[in-house]
Simulated assay, not measured.
Amino acid sequence: MTRTAGGKRRAHRSRTVFTAGAAAAGLLFVTTGCGNGDDGPGEAAGGVPVVEKGKLTTCTHLPYPPFQFEQDGKIVGFDVALVDLVAKDLQVEQKILDTPFENFKTGAFLNSGECDLAAAGMTITDERRKNVDFSVPYFDATQALLASRKSGVTTLAEVKAEKLKLGAQAETTGESYATGQGFDPVAFESSDAVLNGLRTGQVDAVVIDYPVVRGWLKDKANAEAFTLGQNIETGEQYGFSVKKGNDKLRAAIDKAIRDAKADGTYDKIYEQWIGPLPKGRS
């Protein structure tokens, strides 16, 4: 089940999508709905267990640009590119399942054997660590306030003082942060729904990850309609999650991230999907 903007719930059926890397490899398999395919579980290079032979199955929640989103019929983005490196090391192909974000906190799809790992721009928190094991951090994140220009606000304090409506994506740290600041934010199912809520006036401002906001503002219409407000430092770091105790896969993910940072691959992927490297890095 997936939370909608009004706090109601609707049935959600996971669907299989494919990465640009998989498409380039000429894969012919097509799957819909839930399940692990006909091949069943297997082992990747190094004896790493996988839920489907020859595949590294990733649970994500689409869309969440620039981390994972559909472009020209393929699923691409920062997270996708990093997990493709893991899959390459394991001599398998990445396969992506679009699933409800709320299940990432519980590790439900990992525990059920539907996915090997979860990758969705997900912040590492102590609460989530109770249910899943995280990789080493792969991204330092901040939140940002984006407001309609007509609202005239640029800070959360102004949103509160003007008694304006604030929105956030459901089950995210942005929503948690807003709640912790005394707001009762309108919860939207996806980042696309957050943006649409701002466009249609359902909310006056939103709190969401800064890279997502920056991606939105590349669109001229968005840049004209919205104002980028305060940057909110929350000390967040993103990690990929695996089932509790899946140490072999976690170690393989950690190795791929560290190797990519050491040989410059990480920087190239960062610049491609996020933008210029943070100050102090080259």
Rank of each mutant, 00 (worst) to 15 (best):
M1V: 13
T2S: 05
T4Q: 15
T4S: 13
A5K: 10
R10M: 03
R10I: 14
R10V: 14
R13Q: 15
R13N: 10
S14E: 15
S14L: 15
T16L: 13
V17T: 15
F18D: 11
F18I: 14
A24N: 13
L27V: 15
F29M: 12
C34W: 14
C34T: 15
G35I: 00
G35F: 11
D38I: 11
D38L: 12
D38T: 09
D39L: 11
P41R: 06
A44S: 10
G46N: 06
G46W: 08
V48G: 07
P49R: 13
P49Y: 03
G54D: 01
K55R: 14
L56G: 09
T57H: 03
T58C: 09
T58S: 09
C59T: 09
P65C: 01
Q71Y: 01
K74I: 07
G77H: 00
D79K: 08
D79A: 03
V80K: 04
L82T: 03
V83C: 04
L85S: 09
L85A: 10
V86D: 07
A87L: 07
A87K: 05
K88Q: 15
L90M: 09
Q91W: 05
V92S: 01
Q94A: 15
T99Q: 05
F101K: 11
E102G: 08
K105Y: 05
F109C: 14
S112M: 12
S112P: 10
A118L: 14
A119S: 13
A120T: 14
D126A: 07
R128W: 00
R128H: 04
V132F: 09
D133I: 08
S135F: 10
P137I: 12
Y138V: 12
Q143N: 12
L145C: 04
G152F: 00
V153N: 01
T154R: 11
T155C: 00
A157C: 05
A161S: 10
A161P: 08
L164F: 01
L164Q: 02
L166K: 04
L166Y: 07
Q169E: 11
T172V: 06
T172N: 08
G174Y: 00
E175W: 10
E175L: 14
S176L: 03
Y177P: 06
T179D: 07
P185N: 00
V186E: 08
F188Y: 09
A193Q: 02
V194G: 15
N196K: 09
N196Y: 01
G197R: 06
R199M: 12
T200G: 05
T200V: 06
V203Q: 03
D204E: 02
D204G: 05
A205C: 04
I208W: 07
I208L: 15
D209S: 08
Y210N: 15
P211G: 07
V213R: 03
R214V: 11
W216L: 10
W216S: 07
A223Y: 12
A225I: 04
L228D: 03
E233H: 11
T234H: 08
G239Q: 02
G239Y: 00
S241R: 00
L249S: 13
A252Q: 02
A252C: 06
A252Y: 01
I253E: 04
D254V: 05
K255L: 06
A256N: 03
I257H: 10
R258L: 14
A262E: 05
D263S: 08
T265D: 10
T265P: 03
Y266Q: 10
E271C: 10
G275L: 04
P276M: 08
P276R: 13
